[in-house]
Amino acid sequence: MPVRRGHVAPQNTFLDTIIRKFEGQSRKFIIANARVENCAVIYCNDGFCELCGYSRAEVMQRPCTCDFLHGPRTQRRAAAQIAQALLGAEERKVEIAFYRKDGSCFLCLVDVVPVKNEDGAVIMFILNFEVVMEKDMVGSPAHDTNHRGPPTSWLAPGRAKTFRLKLPALLALTARESSVRSGGAGGAGAPGAVVVDVDLTPAAPSSESLALDEVTAMDNHVAGLGPAEERRALVGPGSPPRSAPGQLPSPRAHSLNPDASGSSCSLARTRSRESCASVRRASSADDIEAMRAGVLPPPPRHASTGAMHPLRSGLLNSTSDSDLVRYRTISKIPQITLNFVDLKGDPFLASPTSDREIIAPKIKERTHNVTEKVTQVLSLGADVLPEYKLQAPRIHRWTILHYSPFKAVWDWLILLLVIYTAVFTPYSAAFLLKETEEGPPATECGYACQPLAVVDLIVDIMFIVDILINFRTTYVNANEEVVSHPGRIAVHYFKGWFLIDMVAAIPFDLLI
């Protein structure tokens, strides 16, 4: 008679799926529990143990900040960024110097990925580790590398530091407007667009060049630039800015003055950032001319202004700041037409079709709590990747769950009947059967004279019903998954307890 339990259901295979997918890609990662103190490590794979030199037993239950890997060259700011990422709910990448158990130093890129439950609360953290440099290539500990984003994938490793954006290309926007319009339909740009040429040739750093990471940081200074100062900065030398009595002219307006920039070969870094931020506020060169004239017309309804409409929906549905990093990277690809469009465009503009998908598509409701890094690593669709929660398995109709209350009560009843059979069957065979043979035949009273025979008949009927119930009862397979398919249940029961239950259900007393 089957006594099969499996009270692990309803099970959740999400954690096993993450481990299996990460292991298949030869990654070095740990999984931490966000619900406990210090976000203790609950799993670390073999790749991480080989990377740091510690065994799994030495890593388990330690804080996922990996303070046991810190050393003299470990930056405090990087460690603080990892700790801050564990307090938030967004994906974050941090470069930090770690030390192995043998004392060797290596520069590592740590990717902190939160995993949320159905309520939107962070319950786990996945920390992925990628070695960037070994100890002989690690720089000085005073050099802070965590304020910069990861290198873009479309640049060669040897040319990542030679990417320079020439400031004269930004200063000569109005001069290039006529050349853009003359391109017409034969050019790649839309009317009114501004073409910015980027020099990728390796050259020595000069005062006129600005690194790509500095251009990325310009967006942080746009908020500090007032509207009046932006307007004066875009007017140009024809209309000098008016300053109040006793007030000095704005240095932001002076930063885009061609006369002032041409007199000296070098520009201050602050002026460069502010000038680029001011130019980015204009949607095209037409807006710059309109600002000089004193009238700013409404933005025209053409394809170039609607190019950012799908980007707005993608940004609203993005799951991490990696989408913004990807957008900034692609927006700086050289030799393309940049349409400086305000994100607050007309909502009635139709979304044009684009061959290049900048932001990841909208994630469906079932995966809105899973970050983009987890979705990318697992390579699963929205119909396959579940949320991290207890999910009731989908069972067929008329199927009994093996952990249901009805099955528990039924098993206790069958257990009592088995005990009765084990006690009274030998007793009936030894004593009652002998008395029946010696006594007179009682054929007239039937079952009324033999109450134990009636009980034995009921017990046999219950055993037959138990066999039928076992054909529709779920079970737990070797992978700790609840199986509810009727065919698989029948095959599993035939290979197991079916023969024993059938022999126990045969009414031998009635056959004798």
Score class of each variant (00 low, 15 high):
S104E: 14
A160G: 12
L69G: 01
R4D: 13
S331D: 15
F348C: 08
S354V: 12
D46S: 06
M218L: 06
C105N: 07
G120H: 13
G189Y: 01
S264D: 04
P249L: 12
Q376T: 04
G88H: 08
L87S: 07
T305P: 12
S284P: 09
L338C: 15
A290V: 07
P300N: 14
L316A: 11
K166I: 01
C49Q: 08
R4T: 09
D16E: 09
A277H: 12
S283I: 05
D67I: 13
A307R: 11
N38M: 06
H143N: 06
L127H: 01
A169R: 15
V113C: 12
T305K: 06
N339R: 02
F14V: 12
G314K: 09
T319R: 05
H147T: 09
S26Y: 08
N369K: 15
A78K: 05
H7G: 07
Y54K: 01
L338I: 04
K101V: 01
C105W: 15
G88R: 14
I96D: 01
L315S: 15
S207H: 15
E90Y: 13
E23Y: 01
M133G: 14
G6M: 15
F14H: 15
G88P: 01
S250Y: 05
L296E: 14
R164Q: 06
P334Q: 07
N257M: 15
G47F: 03
D346E: 14
P205D: 12
P298G: 12
D346R: 08
Q25L: 14
F48C: 01
G71R: 01
Y54L: 01
R312L: 07
E95G: 03
F68A: 01
M137V: 07
T353M: 07
D144V: 09
Q11E: 11
A169L: 03
P245Q: 05
S278T: 07
D219M: 05
R176H: 06
N257H: 03
Y327I: 08
D67P: 14
M124A: 12
P299R: 08
Q335W: 07
A40P: 15
S283W: 01
N38I: 01
I18F: 06
S351Q: 15
S207V: 10
L343Y: 07
A40E: 05
Q376E: 12
G103C: 12
L86D: 01
P151Q: 13
G47S: 11
T152D: 05
A244S: 05
I18V: 11
S243V: 05
R242Q: 13
D213E: 06
G71M: 01
S250R: 12
T17G: 13
R301A: 12
T270N: 14
S351A: 08
A97R: 14
V198L: 06
H254G: 08
N117R: 13
K135T: 05
N220C: 08
T145Y: 15
K93V: 08
P150E: 12
F340Y: 14
N339A: 05
D111A: 06
S206D: 05
G47Y: 06
E90A: 14
T375D: 03
S272I: 07
D219V: 06
Y54Q: 01
A303T: 14
L173P: 15
V8N: 04
D346A: 07
Q247D: 15
P299A: 04
C39K: 14
M137T: 15
P151C: 11
R176F: 03
L155T: 14
I336Y: 14
